[in-house]
Design a protein around this nucleic acid. Structure first.
Lengths: 218, 218
DNA sequence: AAACATTTGTCCGTATGTATA
DNA sequence: ATATACATACGGACAAATGTT
């Protein structure tokens, strides 16, 4: 297995990064509940840092829509409405489709192999009912496509939207199924064939159909 | 003329907002040059506030890609490469097209009228060679479509991408021409006719053709 | 290489403003 | 309505890290 080269510097992360990562994780996994009021002193104490890095993290989390700040009043965790999946998916699908199109133009055999291996790992996770792992591998799969597209704006935006999808999945115990394995295989095939139009349709559809996992949302 | 109802509270903006708005403006209009190193103390002094709100603004500006922070080292204004228009436009075009599609489903006669009036003002600005004003009205035109789509994720993302386009236009003295007036008219017509496919094509094209305004960028 | 000068990252105190009794 | 308690926004100081001589 090709070990992903780690270009991170071993520089210990700043208090701000610690706070940001932990807060985002807490919000996504539900430790911090939707609607919950955030007291920066409390958080700071819990993380063993001062209020400043906590506040700076909150700025970023607000920009990403995980918290809402009411200046002078309070900061609270945003709600997670199942129905927001309807707003979230269309732009995500459009951008994933675009990424697929751009990636196709830069596709190498190496990347194809990487995609195939990743889908293999994905299939194994599904079959061993390791659904959380499967979710993460699914993201990895699509990230490969996004990275191949080499467009930093697209990458950045998808990252943000994806975090929200992850949160929704988490809060609603959504799991991926057998079906996605075939989708991925089809995507690889179409990229290989440079069939951009069909690829666009499949990618868009692959994402938009996610809404079916929320049966009550029309 | 229908006066836009102003629901803003007259609450004086916080130091953070002041700093953010001013910094973004300075970066877009070139007061802060691409690549320039930002010294937060200096900025703080210049704005008459402390470093805290300045630093918080910088977090946001980094998230939006206007500055790059090198932790522990420095913060500098990102470069403006003409060629980045190539990365910027595809996602913007895709999302504007999507917004148009969604807006069509919610289109009212009132909105059509608003679009027509706006295009009228746009035409006047072009004809009187008031190009800066024309740019702003063009943004207003597209914002109406985005607002009508009623998707906060799309709105938020487009806002960010648009700010970068604005910066590129500014730094390269790009102006819009007669041609855009017809584009807008065509967009209105297709929305009215609910011809989603043609609309998608036109909107995508309308944005992608912007690249032609940068003749050297292939 | 070592001490210096900057600049950043962080901490904490204070004032302003908000919610609650 | 007034007073009280509290949270936030901001300021200013310190410490760690950088790069500079």
């Amino acid at each position: 297995m090709p070990i992903p080269t780690n270009h991170e510097k071993p520089t210990r992360q700043s208090a701000k990064e610690t706070a940001f990562n932990q807060l985002q994780q807490w919000i996504i996994d539900g430790t911090l509940l939707p609607g919950e009021k955030i007291n920066d002193s409390e958080i700071a104490k819990a993380l063993g840092v001062s209020r400043t890095p906590v506040r700076e993290s909150l700025q970023l989390l607000e920009a990403q829509g995980f918290v809402k700040m009411f200046p002078g009043k309070a900061t609270q965790v945003t709600e997670v409405e199942r129905s927001s999946i309807k707003e979230l998916l269309p732009p995500l699908a459009a951008l994933q489709a675009l990424a697929g199109e751009l990636a196709t133009q830069r596709l190498t055999e190496e990347t194809v192999t990487l995609l195939e291996n990743t889908n293999q790992r994905f299939a194994e996770a599904i079959h061993s009912e390791n659904y959380y792992s499967a979710l993460k591998i699914d993201e990895t799969f699509h990230d490969i496509i996004v990275d191949t597209a080499q467009n930093k704006y697209i990458k950045n935006i998808i990252e943000q939207l994806q975090a929200h999808v992850r949160r929704l999945f988490f809060h609603n115990s959504i799991i991926l199924t057998e079906h996605s394995i075939e989708d991925h295989a089809k995507i690889i095939q179409l990229m290989r064939e440079r069939d951009i139009d069909s690829l666009n349709l499949i990618l868009k559809d692959n994402w938009l159909r996610t809404i079916d996992l929320f049966p009550d949302v029309r």
